[in-house]
Design a protein around this nucleic acid. Sequence first.
DNA 1: ACCGGCATGTAACGGGTTACATGATTTT
DNA 2: AAAATCATGTAACCCGTTACATGCCGGT
Lengths: 177, 177
Amino acid sequence: MDIKTLCLGSLTLGEASGYEIKKLFEEGPFAYFYHASYGSIYPALGELLKNELITMREEAQDGRPDKKVYAITPKGQEVLSQKLKKVPAPDKIRSESMLMIFLADNIDARQLEDVFDGYLASYREKLACVSEPSDQEIEPHCQFAVGFGQALYSAAITYMEENKNLLLEPSQQKAAQ
Amino acid sequence: MDIKTLCLGSLTLGEASGYEIKKLFEEGPFAYFYHASYGSIYPALGELLKNELITMREEAQDGRPDKKVYAITPKGQEVLSQKLKKVPAPDKIRSESMLMIFLADNIDARQLEDVFDGYLASYREKLACVSEPSDQEIEPHCQFAVGFGQALYSAAITYMEENKNLLLEPSQQKAAQ
DNA sequence: ACCGGCATGTAACGGGTTACATGATTTT
DNA sequence: AAAATCATGTAACCCGTTACATGCCGGT
């Protein structure tokens, strides 16, 4: 499952430009399960267009640069359906923040607190972003995805708030076993 | 933060072989925030050894192949501390399962249910794995990491169980807004 | 005057995965 | 007899990120 599939999939939700697709997975409520940079999205759209899996229409905007609006074709729909037929690969996560917390012995307390606070702040931001009411009507399965993100972020925030002491208390009291 | 840093960091927890490091991030309680394959770990260890950031000792075992046990050197400790000084990059997640759920319109109900069930099962497995009591004494910050994983997995499982209907009910009843 | 947001792209570089190769031993 | 686990390693390949390049418009 590569970025081409991601772009194709995004376009089943409606027309969009490369810029908009990027925002969807960088800032939007769906940022928690996938993301991609311009350097992969624009070339992907180029190839999809070449293979006629999508169409492109240039749209002039006032006060802003033109944009290229892409839409999926029937052929693209078919290819997408085919690509989605295989079993999904297991999740791949890479969290440097958690790695640093895990390796906390090797960093000083000051920095550890910075990492912790930054991580917590990032979750609060993500939660806020995923929680802001959308203007559009949301389909049930998108609602499911959004709610899933909310649930995860909330759990993370709560846990971090309640267990900060485990990490940052100088007197490392241990729970009696 | 690359796999070399990961290996170096792992070795601050104690000596280990490449095989053991892989298991730590593939099966162990820390599988949720990072992982790496042999194809990256073995070369990484090779380079670290070449740079004298780690040492290697071959250990014969009965009934099993020999293994190469690596340990971090003072120089390695220094390099690690240095590498951990920068601000951690934001988390990178790639969940094909959630992407498929998000694109549920493009797959048939039967497969969607398979994806859902598989995803839920994988979370249950992970939770079980992260919850099994360790034989070793755990440092507070490792405890924090383990607890974090538990909290996230639990939240995911609960959410999925309670909202399966959002995704799989044929009668897509919507909540009144 | 400058910065941030909108908008599209490219090219080099690197990093890691996948697949292959090998082999002993234990479990089924 | 086959499959799974332990154990190490290599090499090709590919995908994606980073950084660069460009430019307009609106707000401060």
